[in-house]
Nucleic acid binder design. Structure first.
Lengths: 107, 107
DNA sequence: AAGATATTCAACCTATTAGTTGAATATGCA
DNA sequence: TGCATATTCAACTAATAGGTTGAATATCTT
């Protein structure tokens, strides 16, 4: 994954409103107004959050008349997961000497 | 994971300099100056990036005299991975009708 | 004590986020 | 046509990010 794409994905995921929007979309596509309803902020604020999610390509937009339907795009999330899993592999394999000794002692 | 902790973790991971620092630390703990060396920015800028990583508790600091040794703390990364994996599970199980039909057709 | 090294703190600048309100645009409906 | 609905655009504010430079603090070395 290009670093800029990962930057945008991680940044999009760093806000609880945006994570809640993604979670909402797991139960299927939804319109902007529907997505905004549960939040204690203006429709415009939610609209901007959606735009950040689009910038990260975590959500896709389909227009039908005046309604815009949003849905999830799993690819950037897959790539974020990949980066994190790669790191976790390294992190686990580079414990310090004491930790390694303890781990070996278990065997 | 508390939302604020996840916020801080994802935000910390949204910057390429900070991801590079984490990557550097997979080969063992390092001092601030050592970490800063490869980057085309001031030591102070790197010091601030390290502070953001500490705020997310992705790195820990151990002081020995005037030197500060940084090391990785895997916990927040584990929790970020957990959130993402949970989402991925839902995302995969909530494909739209067409996609489900296609998936079933494969069986 | 004095000087070098390791690091942070403080102040500043610019760009971006996250929210607001008000206006514009496009579509649907009577 | 005229009005309501769905959504974005534009302008504004306040807070934060990401960088700079210069000064402060703490420690090591001679």
């Amino acid at each position: 994954m290009q670093t800029a794409a990962l930057d945008a994905t991680m940044l999009a995921l760093s806000d609880p409103t945006r994570r809640a929007i993604l979670n909402r979309l797991t139960s299927g596509e939804a319109r902007v107004t529907e997505i905004a309803a549960p939040f204690a902020m203006s429709l415009n604020a939610v609209s901007k959050h959606i735009q950040m999610l689009e910038r990260a390509e975590l959500v896709r937009r389909r227009k039908s008349g005046r309604e815009h339907f949003l849905s999830l795009n799993p690819k950037p999330l897959d790539e974020a997961a990949e980066w994190i899993e790669q790191q976790r592999t390294f992190w686990n394999s580079s414990l310090d000497a004491l930790e390694r000794a303890l781990a070996e002692h278990k065997d």
